[in-house]
Amino acid sequence: MQDDHYRLLVKRYLEKKSGADELEVFAHLLNEGKLDKYLQEAMDADISAITNGETDVVKTLGSKKNNWLPWLKIVSAASVLLILSAGLYIYLKPAKHLSVAKQLVKKDFTPGSNKAILTLANGSQINLSDVKNGVLAQQGAAYINKSARGNITYQAANTPSTVTTPAAALLNTISTPKGGQYQVTLPDGTHAWLNAASSIRFPAVFSGTERKVAITGEVYFEVTKNKHKPFIVTCANQQLTVLGTHFNVNAYADEKAIKTTLLEGSVNVTNGTRAVILKPGQQSKLSADDNSLLVTDNADTEEATAWKNGMFLFNQADIKTVMSQISRWYDVDVKFEGPLPADHYRGKISRNVNASKVLSILELSGIKFKIEGKTIIVK
């Protein structure tokens, strides 16, 4: 009977069906080493159920082998339970695997949060983290509001404006720092999510025959449909034209290419000399080196938009890509000692955890880190 009970606990945990009480019992029995036998049975019976890309249990690609490092292989009677986020757990051996966590025990790097600066047409700035909810300013015939959820919306004023400058000529900019993110509802109802170290520039009111914005960094759009007024996004040497769709643009200046990933509808992408039309599931890459424009089918849309959903998600990412995301989100500098590792990494973890949790997991693949002030040194 006890065997059946333990097997059921393991089965429900792996299927992510455990309740709070079951998780507490599971953790207690695991730390006592009483579940090792049943976890091994489950791993032997169907290792793919443990290591598939959809599970919320964090996985790391080993630096010596081109396959997943099954998390169960590092379970032991002396395991330490690290609560990464609600419903998300990983069990790690203590001691040598957690060297970076020991370095950060006194001052860890906390995750980013909702913070941004709004720059009005006259150059004045509003710190969106500090101001109270409600009307923040009026730009021509548009009111700027901060909602109870902390988002910014642009709405048409009910009373005539005393400002003589047309709202369409009043350009506003919302910018996030490293360690920040923000959401804005543009004057036409389009929703835009800004990742860390990003910006979007737009008029207080869209008039004329087009809706045009300019971005830096990374922005996810859900564009309000209007077949008579195309929505245009410019960034560096690229211009996107849509009528109404969902897509993500990664245009950080320190990346090798501008990546546009389409989730819904269609997008016309041009680099000035060539134009392509993306279909859902496709991704365009505009090279920073030679301005070439390529299209990839069956793009990993979940990876491209994971940041918006509060996750780090890596699918065959190199170490520079991984550390760039960590640098922006935790507002830290990153330096490399020696040549960059040639390995690629796969994994998924909440962005709501401290940096020590993420770095500790990466250490399992053989990477070593050294912390000096606000700089992470990759050895």
Rank of each mutant, 00 (worst) to 15 (best):
R7E: 14
L8N: 12
V10S: 07
L14K: 01
S18E: 10
A20F: 04
E22W: 06
L23P: 00
V25W: 00
V25H: 05
F26E: 08
A27K: 08
L30Y: 03
N31I: 03
E32M: 08
E32S: 10
E32Q: 14
A42K: 07
M43Y: 15
A49G: 14
I50N: 01
N52D: 14
P70S: 13
K73L: 14
K73T: 15
A78C: 00
L81P: 00
L82R: 04
G87Y: 03
P94T: 11
H97Q: 12
L98P: 02
K102E: 15
D108C: 08
F109M: 13
T110Y: 11
P111F: 10
G112W: 03
T119V: 07
A121H: 06
S129V: 01
D130E: 15
G134C: 06
G134E: 05
V135C: 08
L136M: 09
Q139K: 03
Q139N: 08
G140P: 02
Y143F: 10
I144S: 07
N145K: 11
N145C: 05
G150E: 09
T153H: 01
A157S: 15
S161I: 05
A169Y: 02
L170N: 05
T173H: 03
T176C: 08
Y182G: 07
T185M: 07
T185N: 06
T185Q: 09
L194Y: 05
T209M: 09
R211F: 02
V213H: 03
A214G: 02
G217T: 05
V219Y: 00
Y220C: 08
F221G: 14
F221I: 14
E222P: 01
E222A: 12
N226I: 05
P230G: 13
P230C: 13
V233I: 15
C235H: 04
N237P: 01
Q238P: 02
L240P: 01
G244F: 03
G244D: 07
N250D: 14
A253Y: 00
A253E: 13
L262C: 12
E264S: 13
K285T: 07
L286I: 11
A288K: 06
D289L: 13
D290H: 06
S292N: 10
D297C: 03
D297F: 00
E302H: 03
T305A: 08
W307Q: 10
K308N: 09
F312L: 13
F312Q: 12
L313I: 04
F314M: 10
Q316F: 09
Q316N: 15
K320W: 01
S324E: 13
I326D: 12
S327I: 04
F336M: 14
V353S: 15
N354E: 15
A355R: 00
A355I: 10
V358E: 12
L364R: 13
I367W: 02
K370G: 06
I377D: 06
I377K: 08
K379C: 02
